[in-house]
């Protein structure tokens, strides 16, 4: 198959085949990370700018390293030094940066749709590195990649996304990607954070973690933002953790081969107890490693790379 997309804005827009194509391409790049010289010349001479209007450490570092391993020149632009605070519009900022000759803009923004609006205004490729509560496609891809590398296939798996689904871009990208690859998605959390409307997307909504616990093959535990409590969306962290936290006792009642994911950073003792986070069922650090390979694959494909196997020729 041939890669047709100039941008990666969300998993909602991709077909099952396209998602599998990215995952297969990432498999090839995972091998690069194991070499002593962890670099391929695939994007030599290309310029990538990480345009981050919202604080992020791990996603930015992951994209930075992914670009470096592809031999691209990578620059970082962060919100704290941004000219947007001086009243310059998003579009003007992006056009100014683009005028320096940029091939790929990796965009993180607190507003849903900001990367989509930019993609219409610039000639560079745009990768969405998280837009508001909308999508975080590379996170969705790396979660799916991680599940696939353990279980072989997503087909027929029961995946529970636990937490603040309503405000989570990670949840949305997971929902699209997982469903396209044949998994059944459960959305678990308090009624104020897990809207019933999710059922219209084909998701099973559940407000009782213990009820679905025995059926679940994969738990994706979302980070709970403490400001949601400040806004009164749930009564307390303590109660949240009691109802929806994953601990050793709950894990003992889950399937023996259950897999535990978390997009990070973890609130230890809230979403996960330390024994679960660091235990044998946790794939959290694999997610981070795999994130690199997935982001290399995405940067490679949208800049016109061929796909699985092709980079082996470099």
């Amino acid at each position: 198959m041939e890669w047709r997309h100039k941008h990666l804005l969300g998993l909602e827009d991709l077909t099952r085949e396209e998602i599998l194509f990215i995952l297969d391409t990432a498999e090839g790049f995972k091998e690069v990370s194991r070499r002593s010289v962890k670099k391929v010349p695939a994007l030599r001479g290309k310029v990538i700018v990480n345009l981050f209007f919202e604080p992020s450490t791990r996603t930015r570092i992951s994209f930075e390293l992914a670009g470096a391993r592809l031999s691209a020149d990578v620059l970082n632009f962060t919100g704290s030094t941004s000219s947007t605070q001086k009243g310059e519009s998003l579009a003007d900022t992006a056009r100014n940066i683009e005028a320096m000759g940029v091939d790929i803009l990796v965009v993180r923004h607190s507003c849903a749709g900001a990367p989509h609006q930019l993609a219409r205004k610039v000639s560079a490729s745009v990768v969405n590195a998280g837009d508001g509560a909308h999508e975080h496609p590379t996170q969705g891809l790396l979660d799916i990649f991680t599940i696939r590398s353990v279980r072989g296939s997503l087909e027929g798996l029961n995946v529970a996304i636990v937490g603040d689904i309503g405000h989570s871009r990670v949840a949305r990208s997971n929902i699209w990607g997982l469903q396209k690859l044949g998994a059944r998605v459960f959305a678990v959390g308090p009624a104020t954070l897990v809207p019933r409307t999710l059922e219209e997307l084909g998701v099973t909504v559940c407000h009782n973690l213990d009820q679905v616990l025995p059926e679940i093959d994969v738990f994706n535990m979302l980070r709970i933002q403490r400001e949601r409590q400040d806004h009164g969306l749930f009564p307390s962290i303590r109660e949240y953790s009691r109802l929806f936290g994953l601990n050793g006792e709950r894990l003992a009642r889950a399937k023996p081969d259950v897999l535990v994911l978390h997009p990070g950073p973890i609130n230890r003792g809230v979403e996960l107890t330390p024994d679960v986070a660091d235990g044998p069922r946790s794939a959290i650090l694999n997610q981070v490693t795999n994130g690199l390979a997935v982001r290399m694959a995405v940067l490679y494909l949208i800049s016109g790379g061929g796909g699985p196997g092709v980079q082996a020729a470099h």
């Binding site: 749709g113 837009d131 909308h134 999508e135 949305r172 409307t197």
Partner: peptide, 10 residues
């Protein structure tokens, strides 16, 4: 407020 706002995260 509806399924579209849910999809878009707005």
């Amino acid at each position: 407020h509806g399924v579209v706002s849910l999809r878009l995260g707005l």
